[in-house]
Each structure stands twice: as structure tokens, then as C-alpha cells.
């Protein structure tokens, strides 16, 4: 049962079948450009989803994505197949996003500045309100502190388990769970003004 659970988790984090992944990594280590291309195509979208959610700005996210794959490709020699390749690449992405955001002081923008005040929202059409709700949600997540934002992205966008998140983030599952609890309480507080018909 435990082995079955473990293998299910590995599958959830894998974008390629294990043997295919291994062969491509070995080919890429030998400098095969086609192998790099295949790895990039296999992991690009998942890494992009995480990076754009964490960094926010698309141009900066492109820069970060480029650095992530540059570092991943350069360091493939040190990948030991002890974890899934996605876990390994995600760790690089996690560090890059954190470093990038440390360098840039992201200003806090109140939600009202993006989606308008409560009164303005109530007076708008339903389709516009739906767009505003989405914008409010994105903005609320975007302005969470980095550690909270990260667990929300991994949990709800990547649909990862606590064990998988703990492997990626390098902390115990209990820490992940408490971080997620704090993140959700914070998210609720930030979205409180937009509850109801929004």
C-alpha cells in the first residue's frame, strides 16, 4: 500500500515516463540539443505556471524561466535520479523566483486599485463582475508573502500533496500544512471585501 502510494506520488510529479526521462537526461548530459528540446517541452508549461504565478510580471517571468532552464541544463550532470526531474527543476525555479523577488521590492497594490471599490463593483454587469472577481483572486494570491503564495500555487494549481510539496520546498509536511493554513486565512481576509455577489 505504501509503495503504491509512493509510486502514485512520483507519477503526479512526473511529466515523462521514468525510463524516457532517464534516457533524455543522459542524452542531454552528452550535449544532445534535441534532448534539451524534449526536456524543455515536457516541463516548460508546468514550470511556467508556477513561475508566472510567483513572479507575476510576464516579462520578468520569461527571464526567470530562461534562467531556471539554463541552470537546470547546466547542472544536469549533478541530477542523481533520486527524485523526479520536475521536483529537481522546481527546486531551481523556487530559488530563482525567491532570489528574483528579493532583488525587486514588489509594491503592495490594494485590491481596490485594481478592481474598484465595493460600490463600483455592485454597479457593474455580471460578466464584468466575473472578470473583476478573477482579477481580485489573482491579485490576492499575487500579493501574498512569497512562502504563502508558493504553497497556494503548488496546492491548487499543481494539485500536489503535502508530501510532494515538502519534497520540493525542503521542509516537513507539517510545516507545509501550517503554512497553507496561514495562507488560506490571509487569502480569506484579503478577499473579504469582495464576498457576496462579486
Amino acid at each position: 500500500m505504501a509503495a503504491e502510494f509512493s509510486s502514485l506520488q512520483t507519477v503526479a510529479l512526473r511529466c515523462l515516463p521514468a525510463d524516457r526521462e532517464r534516457n533524455i537526461v543522459l542524452a542531454a548530459r552528452r550535449g544532445d540539443a534535441e534532448a534539451f528540446r524534449e526536456l524543455y517541452h515536457a516541463y516548460r508549461d508546468r514550470v511556467w505556471t508556477v513561475v508566472i504565478s510567483l513572479v507575476g510580471d510576464p516579462l520578468q517571468a520569461q527571464d526567470v524561466l530562461q534562467v531556471v532552464f539554463f541552470k537546470a541544463f547546466r547542472s544536469l550532470g549533478s541530477f542523481r535520479f533520486q527524485s523526479g526531474l520536475f521536483t529537481w527543476i522546481y527546486r531551481i525555479a523556487h530559488n530563482e523566483c525567491r532570489n528574483h523577488l528579493r532583488k525587486r521590492d514588489v509594491p503592495h497594490i490594494p485590491l481596490e486599485a485594481i478592481v474598484g471599490s465595493r460600490e463600483e463593483i455592485d454597479g457593474t454587469r455580471v460578466s464584468d463582475r466575473e472578470e473583476m472577481r478573477k482579477a481580485a483572486l489573482r491579485s490576492a494570491v499575487k500579493h501574498l508573502p512569497f512562502k504563502m503564495r508558493e504553497v497556494v500555487v503548488l496546492k491548487y494549481q499543481e494539485d500536489l500533496s503535502y508530501t510532494e510539496m515538502s519534497r520540493i520546498l525542503g521542509c516537513p509536511p507539517g510545516t507545509v500544512a501550517s503554512r497553507l493554513n496561514r495562507a488560506l486565512a490571509e487569502l480569506e481576509m484579503r478577499l473579504r471585501p469582495f464576498k457576496g455577489p462579486v
Binding site: 511556467w48 505556471t49 504565478s53 510576464p58 496546492k155 491548487y156 494549481q157 488560506l184 487569502l187 478577499l191
Partner: peptide, 11 residues
């Protein structure tokens, strides 16, 4: 809210 965020996907 998290579940709804997960369904949004990238912009």
C-alpha cells in the same frame, strides 16, 4: 478561493 484560483490557470 484557492480552488477557484487553481481553476483559473495562467492569464
Amino acid at each position: 478561493a484557492g480552488r477557484q484560483f487553481g481553476r483559473l490557470g495562467p492569464e
